[in-house]
Amino acid sequence: MKPSKKILNDFGGIMYSTDPSFVYPEEETTATAILANNQQHLKVMLDRKNRGGKAVTLITGFVGGPEDLEKLAKQLKTKCGVGGAAKDGEILIQGDFRNKVVELLQKEGYKVKRSGG
């Protein structure tokens, strides 16, 4: 992942300082620790909002880094034989694969709960 550009908001609104010893406050980056599979509580639901009526299976509640999320998403997409995406801490699988996704995640050791209808 490439580093994001520094913008004015990153500096708390400070544009210029005449103090020669002034140092811009650096934001602390905390590494998200990945939980073991049996400690993860995932929710699987069907979502049709803002997708033109197309149904997607939505998996939420994953705790871990973006690489781990991508890895799990790729595994689920491959097993279901469809496309999808992993963004904003959620996994989107194209189509209604709730039952299959729940079974696959339970085999991996995740605590899974079906949510919604």
Rank of each mutant, 00 (worst) to 15 (best):
P3A: 11
P3G: 09
S4C: 09
K5I: 01
K6W: 13
L8A: 12
L8Y: 03
N9L: 15
D10L: 01
D10N: 15
F11D: 00
G12V: 02
G12N: 09
G12I: 01
G13W: 01
M15W: 09
M15T: 14
M15P: 00
M15N: 07
Y16D: 06
S17D: 09
T18N: 14
D19E: 03
P20F: 02
P20L: 09
P20K: 06
S21T: 13
S21Y: 08
S21E: 14
S21K: 12
F22M: 02
V23T: 14
V23I: 12
V23N: 08
V23S: 12
Y24K: 06
Y24L: 10
P25W: 05
P25E: 14
E26V: 08
E27F: 03
E28L: 12
E28T: 13
E28Y: 08
T29N: 10
T29P: 00
T29V: 15
T30G: 04
A31E: 10
T32V: 15
T32H: 02
T32D: 01
A33Q: 15
A33E: 15
A33D: 10
A33K: 14
A33T: 14
I34F: 05
I34E: 15
L35E: 10
L35R: 10
A36N: 10
A36S: 10
N37S: 14
N37Y: 08
N38I: 07
Q40Y: 02
H41Y: 11
H41K: 14
K43D: 03
K43N: 15
V44H: 00
V44L: 03
V44P: 00
M45T: 12
M45F: 03
L46V: 11
D47P: 00
D47W: 10
D47F: 07
R48K: 15
R48I: 14
K49V: 11
K49A: 13
K49D: 13
N50D: 13
N50K: 12
N50Y: 13
G52Y: 03
G52D: 07
G52P: 04
K54Q: 06
A55Q: 06
A55F: 08
V56K: 00
V56Q: 01
V56I: 13
T57Q: 03
L58F: 02
L58A: 01
T60R: 11
G61M: 12
F62P: 00
F62T: 01
F62N: 00
F62I: 01
V63N: 12
V63A: 09
V63Y: 04
G64V: 07
G65R: 09
G65M: 07
G65W: 02
P66A: 11
E67M: 09
D68F: 11
D68L: 08
E70M: 11
E70H: 10
E70I: 06
K71F: 13
K71N: 15
A73D: 00
K74C: 07
K74S: 12
Q75G: 00
Q75Y: 04
Q75E: 14
L76W: 00
K77L: 05
K79Q: 14
K79C: 05
C80T: 12
C80E: 10
C80D: 03
G81Q: 07
G81A: 02
V82I: 14
V82C: 05
V82N: 04
V82F: 03
V82T: 15
V82H: 02
G83P: 04
G84V: 01
A85H: 01
A85D: 14
A85F: 02
A86N: 02
A86M: 03
K87D: 10
